[in-house]
Every structure is written in C-alpha cells, then in structure tokens.
Simulated scan of single mutants.
Amino acid sequence: MASEYMKEAGHKAIADGPAAMRTFIETDQHRIRLDDYRIAIIRLLHSAGPSLEEGIKGFLKTDGRTLADLRHFYEVTQHKLRDIDNRVEIARLANTAGPALKEAVKKALLGTPADRIAFLEKGRHIAQAEDDRAELARIDEGWDGPILSEAISKLLNGSPTPAELRHFLEVTQHELRDQDNRVEIAQIIDGGGPELVKAGRAALAGTPADRAAFLLTGQHEARKKDEKAQQEKDKNDGKNDDSSDDKGDDKSDGRTDQDDAGAGAGNDDEKNTGTGTGNTAMTPQSGSGTQLASTGAGDTPMIAGGAGAALIGGAGLLLAARMRRQASGN
C-alpha cells in the first residue's frame, strides 16, 4: 500500500538522517497511510454501484476512523457491498434474458462472489451471444425481405464476436429491415390506385416507423379508398348509359307517328293475306291506276285469309279475258 507520496517521504527521511527516520517511523508513516487509504476508498466511487457508493459516503463522513477501520473497509467491507451490487445487476439481466442467459444467471447467483464477478466480466456475454444467435435465426425464418435475410445468413455462417452479434440485433437489423420495407413499398404502389400511390410515396419520404405503419395498416386503408372511388365511378357511368338509352328509345329511328300508322296498317294486311308484301292493291297492266278492291260480285272487300286471296286472283283472270276480247273485236 506504499503510495508515491509514502515513498517520497521515506526517501527524504533517509536522506535527512537518523532523527528524521525515527520521526517517519513513529509518526509520519501512520499519518500518510491514513491519507492513502482515504484516497483509495474515494477512488472506489468511480466504479461503485448503489450499495457501495452509499457505504463509502457513510464511512467517510464519520470522524475518528483509525487506520484499522480504513484498512478493513478497503480490504473487506467494499467487496461485500460490491457483491450486493453485483447480485442486483445479475438479477436485473434475467428480466430480458433468453434461455441461455437465464440459465447462466441462476448459476452465478448460486455461486461465489468471484463467480458473479466472472459472470459480469465475461460469462454474461458468452451466454448472451448464444441467445442472440437463436434470435437471429428466428428473425431470418419469419422475414421475407432478401436484404436482411442475406445479411443474417452471412453473419451466422461466419465467426462473429458476442459484441458483433449484439450490435447487429440492436442496430444493423433495423437498418436492413427498413431497406427491405422500401423495396416492398415500391413494388406495392407500382400500378396501384391514386390513394395507394399517394400513401406509399409519403411513407417512402417518411421515417422507418412510417414505412412499417404503411405496410401494416396504411396500404389496406388506401386500397379501400381506391375501391370506393372506383365503385362510385362505375355507378355514375351506369347512370349515364341508362340516360342515353332512354333518349334513343324516345326518338326511335326518326319515323313520325304517321309513318308508324302506315307501317302498322301494312303489317296488319301482311298478316291477313299471308303474302308478306304489306300491300293488297293491284294495278292493271294498262296503267289506268284504278285500284281493284272487290270481285265485282258486291261491294264487300275480300280480306279473309286464303279464300280472299283466291277470289282476288279470280277477278284478275276475268279482267284479263275481257281485255283480250275487246282487243280482238277491234
């Protein structure tokens, strides 16, 4: 425990002679040693946990501490208080630990103070690395993005340190996950509706949280808006088509009511005569233009089915015979 100050004072006493050496041995060394222990105890505060820090402050506040008191605190009490802090720290790790780290925590808490020190210095990182490997494999299995999956495979197939595994989980995986999200959003909005494209572009220009939210819920909300707009458009287009059809029906093919009446009459005659011509009037070959509407046996027109057609045909033969006779007489 000889500090530099103690060494310097001892060398000076030797150089000053027997009286100075006697004074150093009987008085000065004890005073200097008290100061050295106090300084050493104060320095413990830099790495102290709550229990050790409280113990140091309480110890130094008490006056009249002897050299034996200081030595005992430094050599015994500080280690007991430090082990209390170590236990608390180890137990805290178990709250978020994976299977491997939890098992290591149990062993450390049941072990010696030296076991707990070794666990905090090295054992915890080894156990954490085992859990980190399992977590990375789980992420790879449940993630479809190629960028993150490729990076995980490359990392696990190498020889990463515990620190590299931890950094990948805490930092790198989130950066690569966002890159995969960007690619997926770009694919989703390609050829999408107006609302989907608008929301996708806003997500691409936003934060990683914005992109994750778009993929989780935003894209579905935007699609619903596009579907609703399309339904409204289809509905309005259908109304416009119905209106055009109504106008076409009203105008028909441009014929007047009179034309329709004439066509109706012709249709009726066509149905009654069976000739399909739509007209029963016959013009004589002389071109007199006189319409023959009867047989000469009365004034009742013959329009009853096949019998009427036969009678009309007979009248035509009679007329033709008379005309031949007249021609021969002349």
Rank of each mutant, 00 (worst) to 15 (best):
R201P: 01
L319M: 05
M21V: 15
G248Q: 12
Q231V: 07
D253Y: 13
A129L: 04
R33T: 08
D257L: 14
K7V: 10
Q187S: 15
T66Q: 04
I32K: 00
H167W: 06
A297Y: 11
T27N: 12
K233D: 02
A97W: 01
I32F: 09
D260I: 07
G262H: 09
K198P: 01
L155K: 01
P18D: 03
E89I: 04
D69S: 03
A2D: 10
D36R: 00
D268Y: 01
G238H: 02
K224Y: 07
A20R: 04
R201M: 10
K61N: 07
L109D: 10
K235N: 08
T295R: 12
G55R: 11
Y74N: 09
E221C: 05
S244G: 07
D36M: 02
K233P: 00
I42W: 14
D259I: 03
H46L: 09
F24V: 02
L60W: 10
R87I: 04
F24D: 02
I32Q: 11
N95C: 11
S47P: 00
G276K: 11
G158A: 13
G305A: 12
I56E: 02
T172P: 04
T27E: 15
G298N: 11
D144K: 14
D257K: 11
R177M: 06
I41T: 03
E4G: 12
S288D: 14
N330G: 09
D85A: 14
T273S: 15
S328F: 00
I139G: 08
D246R: 13
L67T: 00
L34K: 15
I147V: 13
H72E: 12
L136Q: 00
V88D: 01
D83R: 05
A9H: 00
I312D: 11
A309R: 13
G98A: 05
E89A: 07
D16G: 06
Q258I: 15
L120R: 03
E103K: 14
D85I: 06
A297R: 12
I25G: 00
T290L: 13
L204S: 13
D83W: 02
A297E: 07
Q219K: 15
A151I: 03
G17D: 11
G145K: 08
G313L: 15
A203P: 06
L155Y: 05
H125G: 10
T66R: 06
L169G: 14
T300I: 11
A293C: 08
K198M: 05
I84T: 12
R87C: 07
I189M: 03
T112I: 07
I126L: 10
M323Y: 00
K228N: 05
M282R: 10
G298D: 11
F214R: 01
V183M: 14
G64W: 00
D210A: 08
A15G: 12
